[in-house]
Structures are given as structure tokens and as C-alpha cells.
Simulated scan of single mutants.
Amino acid sequence: MNTGLTHIRLQGPLIVGAGPSGLAVAACLSQRGVPFLILEKENFIASLWRLRSYDSLKLHLPKKFCQLPHMPFPKEYPVYPTKQQFISYLESYAKHFSIHPMFGCEVKSADYNTTMGLWRVVANGSEYLCRWLIVATGDNANPAVPEIDGLTIFGGKMVHSSGYKNGAEFRGRKVLVVGCGNSGMEISLNLCRNGARVSLVVRHKLHILPRDILGRSSFGIAIGLLKLFPLRLVDWFLILSSRLLLGDTSRVGIARPQDGPLHLKNTTGKTPVLDVGLLSKIKSGQIKVVSEVQRFTSNGVEFMDGETEEFDSVILATGYTSNVASWLKVESLSGQAKGDNNKSSWLSNMKGKNGIYSIGIAGKGLFGASTDAERAAEDIAWQWNFLGKHPSSKINPYVA
């Protein structure tokens, strides 16, 4: 035991994170009669959605694929709910299932004690002991900043996409967006609509798909087709539909990979970009596609193709990384070394050894997180009933 800490033994699992994934698994546990405790470092739920997302953000997939278990979105919500609508939905979700996280509790460390057969989680001067630990901190805990020569000497405004809210403050400015995933594309479009002069860095080949095909979600169509046809045929259909609806993207400087979008997603985790109007802006010349950045200068950029250009501002839409390795001592997991990002690891497979689970960390989005939440809750509930319940505490319903 660590000295100076208050030791708290929990009846059920401890959940780290009160975002969509944490709320989803909490609701699934609640439905099965398993008590739980959620620790959340911020003072509210869905902190990443509130603090690190841009104002114009909408769900990339239709609401039926993004709803959490056991509670659909309100019928009056549009097919693609806004950021604020999603946050409101999460607030209603927590209230409906009586989910009350312990806010302001940042986990400093977690390790598995083989002698006790329990997880030890340290947060805010307390050590929580539990049989099950559920990691639900998401993929987007830490902004990823690339190592580019001269990054620190650029004299203009530079901000990571996690700090971008809207394009109003960039009106009339020359802005370079580094990163061409869904966030980079949507931020570029938002900047353009707010009167900025936008250049978008496209480093690699990528698939851009229409968000909708004949009024239906391309994702929904793909899910349906995969039940009937092999993946390669579904990929062929998506690429053909994209060419018919969007045209040849290579003509505007965005080449497609040889492998299909679903194949790439399954093998590399790289998500295809869903077009919500950006391509039309590129074709009209309102948004300029540029090559990879070689280095930054005090007032602009030198590109790999030798071109140089001045910019007032730079938006780094370069993604995020998980913070799990900073507090979870994964050496305690057999075969899992600290910092191991192997896709075959427990982080990608929902369940690990010694009663640890991960929800919403494998890059499968809300759709995958909800599925994993149900699986994890079912697995824990089986153990809970098979191994027997701990006696309830008169002081704290979470504590045995």
C-alpha cells in the first residue's frame, strides 16, 4: 500500500473518463445491476467535446450510428447532429441513467497488484482498489504536434486544431492548414466560409468519399453492403460512387491510394474523409492544395516542391494521441510493454488481462465504442454474478 493515501475498495469496476465511451459503459453496467465509479479529471462530462472541438463540428455519421446504448437521439435532431446537440444528448444520457462521475479527479497512476488480484488506481490523494478497470479516456487526450523544421520560429499565429473554434478571427488572413483528415478539411471549409484565404497541405494519397449517396449515408450503405458482399466489392462501389459524384480528385492535387477505403481503415486505421463541401471550394480555386511542408520560416513556409509562400496563420490539424501510457503501468499486463501501440494489443481488442478493458480507444468511433461498451459490461456482469457480489457498504454504495 502507498503511504499517505486514503484506500478505497470498490465493489464494481472503476471507469476512467466521463466522455461518450465512459457514459456508454456506465449505462450498460447500470442496466445489468453492476455498480461502478467514474473518475473524470475535468468538472463536467464530455470535456474533449466541450474544450477541444471547433464550433461548426457535426457528427460525421448519421445519428443512428452514433447514439449510445439504450437511448436514441431525440427525434427532432437532424440526421447529423451539431456539436452542441451531441453535448446536450450526453447530458440527458447521464441524467437518464443516473450517472454521477466524481469530477476533478485526475488519475495519476494505475497498476495491477498480483498479490491482491486487484487494480490500484491513484487519484487526488486516494488509492482505489478494484477488480475491474475500464479505460475510457478516448483517442484525443493529447494534441499531436509534428516535428517540422523551423516550427518554433514562425512569427504568425499558430494553433493546433484542438484550440480552433471558428474562422471569424481569421477573416482576410492567409491561413495554412496542415493536415487533411476530416478535421483539417472541415476547418479549411469553415475558414473559407469566414473569408480567410486558405491553403491546405496534402501530404499523402487519401480517399475522399461523398458523405451521402443518393440521400443515404455512404457509411450506412457500406455497412449494409458488407452483409452481402466481400469488402473488395464494397470498396469498388464506394470508389466508383465517389468518382461519379465528386469527380477525379487527382485533378485538384488529391490522389487516391491503390487500396480501397475500407481495406485501409481495417489495416492501417486511416479513416476516409467525408466531403461536406470542401471539394467544390478547391475546384473553384477558393481553397488551394499545396504540397508537404519542408520547413517554416519567420513569415511563411518552404514546401517540398521548392515553392515558398508567406502566411499570417497556421492551423495544425495533425491529430491526437492517447494519454493512457502516461498513467497506466502497462508493464503489469503480460505481453504488453509500455508505449506499445501494436494494433493487436488489448487497447484494440477491448478486453485485456487481469480485468482491464478499453472503450473508445481503438479508433472505431462512437459506433465501435458503443458496441465495445455492451461487450465489456456483459463480460463484467457475468463475472459479477458468477463470482458473487460484495456486501454493500452503509457509507458508500460504490465501496465494499
Score class of each variant (00 low, 15 high):
222 A>N: 10
203 R>G: 06
171 R>A: 15
213 I>S: 09
216 R>I: 11
190 N>Q: 07
161 S>H: 03
182 N>Y: 14
169 E>M: 12
144 A>E: 06
159 V>H: 02
213 I>V: 15
153 I>W: 00
199 S>K: 11
149 D>K: 08
174 K>Y: 15
167 G>N: 08
157 K>M: 03
173 R>M: 14
147 E>T: 12
160 H>E: 02
221 I>P: 00
156 G>Y: 10
206 L>K: 08
140 N>S: 14
214 L>Q: 13
175 V>A: 07
211 R>K: 15
212 D>A: 11
221 I>S: 05
154 F>M: 07
191 L>G: 04
183 S>N: 09
191 L>Y: 10
211 R>M: 02
204 H>Q: 09
206 L>H: 08
212 D>F: 04
177 V>E: 02
179 G>D: 01
184 G>P: 12
154 F>G: 03
176 L>Q: 03
165 K>R: 15
157 K>L: 10
219 F>I: 08
177 V>Q: 04
173 R>V: 05
132 W>V: 06
222 A>H: 10
164 Y>N: 09
181 G>Q: 08
215 G>K: 12
194 N>T: 10
133 L>V: 11
188 S>K: 07
184 G>F: 01
152 T>S: 13
183 S>G: 09
206 L>F: 02
143 P>G: 08
195 G>A: 11
196 A>V: 12
134 I>W: 04
153 I>F: 00
170 F>T: 09
206 L>E: 13
176 L>G: 04
219 F>K: 00
167 G>S: 10
196 A>Y: 03
168 A>N: 13
221 I>R: 12
201 V>N: 09
141 A>E: 07
189 L>P: 00
218 S>L: 07
142 N>L: 15
170 F>D: 13
140 N>E: 14
155 G>W: 14
145 V>H: 13
139 D>F: 08
219 F>L: 07
206 L>P: 00
165 K>G: 02
141 A>M: 05
168 A>L: 14
218 S>D: 03
208 I>P: 00
154 F>V: 13
163 G>S: 11
186 E>Q: 15
216 R>K: 14
136 A>G: 10
198 V>Y: 11
165 K>N: 11
133 L>A: 03
202 V>W: 05
147 E>I: 00
135 V>T: 01
203 R>L: 01
148 I>K: 01
143 P>A: 09
206 L>W: 05
161 S>R: 00
139 D>C: 12
172 G>H: 04
192 C>F: 01
132 W>H: 15
218 S>Q: 02
138 G>N: 12
142 N>R: 15
135 V>Q: 07
212 D>K: 10
192 C>S: 11
181 G>F: 06
181 G>T: 01
167 G>H: 07
174 K>H: 15
210 P>A: 05
